[in-house]
């Protein structure tokens, strides 16, 4: 069996979904490629101007690598790509990419969800929203914690 491939990046620049897909699709023996991209959402009610993402350099990369390794071990996927953007982003811009290559679709779907749930509760990243009316730090959601619990993460 080929060694699992892991790509972890924390960057301010945008990423290309097509390029990342191509890299994953080149994984030897893979029969399924799944990508998820998260965007800056403006639900219209808050008039979001921008989202600022802060992180803990070094620890973020370690945490993301840890989750990729866990996903590989747990779901036997062949490759994981995880890209998280930092800095100032505007509505509809891409924030995060999770990509998984595996033999079959079911483990790719599970691994992708697992990675997102873990990332949202464990990776040291914080969002500050800039609205027309002022700025504030977004509070952690209990629903995210509930979703992460499904995977028996402590």
């Amino acid at each position: 069996m080929n060694k699992p491939l892991i790509k972890i990046t924390v960057q301010s620049e945008d990423f290309s979904l097509a390029d990342e897909y191509q890299l994953l699709a080149a994984t030897p023996g893979c029969g399924a490629v799944l990508t998820f991209s998260g965007l800056v959402r403006d639900d219209g009610e808050t008039a979001l101007q921008a989202l600022e993402l802060e992180h803990y350099p070094g620890m973020t990369e370690q945490a993301l690598t840890g989750i990729a390794l866990l996903a590989i071990e747990r779901f036997k996927v062949k490759a994981v790509t995880l890209i998280h953007r930092i800095g100032t982003l505007t509505p509809q811009q891409q924030i995060v990419l999770v990509g998984v290559a595996s033999s079959h679709r079911s483990e790719a779907f599970s691994a992708c969800e697992f990675i997102m749930d873990y990332l949202k509760t464990k990776a040291p990243l914080w969002k500050k929203q800039h609205l027309v009316t002022g700025s504030d730090w977004i509070a952690a959601k209990s629903t995210d914690a509930e979703r992460a619990k499904r995977w028996d993460l402590t």
Binding site: H55, Y56, H84, V96, P124, L125, W126, K127, A140
Partner: peptide
């Protein structure tokens, strides 16, 4: 040292400690 810890964790000279709010990435 960039690993989540708790209040009982032992700290030694040379360590890097960090405090932060619950995370909100993704």
């Amino acid at each position: 040292n960039q690993q989540i810890c708790n209040l009982d964790t032992i700290v030694q000279p040379g360590d890097e400690l960090a405090f932060f709010p619950p995370v909100t990435g993704g």
